[in-house]
């Protein structure tokens, strides 16, 4: 079993395994790994995503409004994000 990644790193990795994902979808997918931790909040996840977008490793080109009129942003990994993962993802983790 590979070491648990830092949350931001793991989020980047998860987004690389899907075409696109919203903060809620990422939270749902990572709940088994980080769900018991105090940092496991929507605010923390949204903040990580905004930071990674600002650092040009994620794109946020897909948006919609949910049934309650709340904004949902779908993030996808770009070439720079893929390059970083390929180079720095620890052993035991696969980049798909």
């Amino acid at each position: 079993m590979a070491d648990t990644l830092p949350l931001r790193f793991r989020m980047l990795h998860y987004v690389s395994t899907v075409k696109k994902a919203s903060a809620d979808e990422i939270m749902k997918a990572l709940k088994p790994e980080y769900g018991t931790e105090k940092q496991f909040t929507k605010k923390v996840f949204v903040n990580h995503l905004l930071d990674m977008k600002a650092n040009h490793i994620l794109d946020d080109n897909d948006v919609t409004l949910d049934d309650e009129g709340e904004l949902v942003i779908y993030y996808s990994i770009n070439d720079e994000g893929k390059r970083l993962l390929k180079k720095y993802l620890p052993k035991g983790w696969n980049q798909t």
């Binding site: 080109n61 897909d62 948006v63 919609t64 409004l65 904004l71 949902v72 779908y74």
Partner: peptide
């Protein structure tokens, strides 16, 4: 931009 939402989003 792949716009799946509306302008408001």
């Amino acid at each position: 931009m792949s716009i799946s939402g509306n302008q408001k989003a």
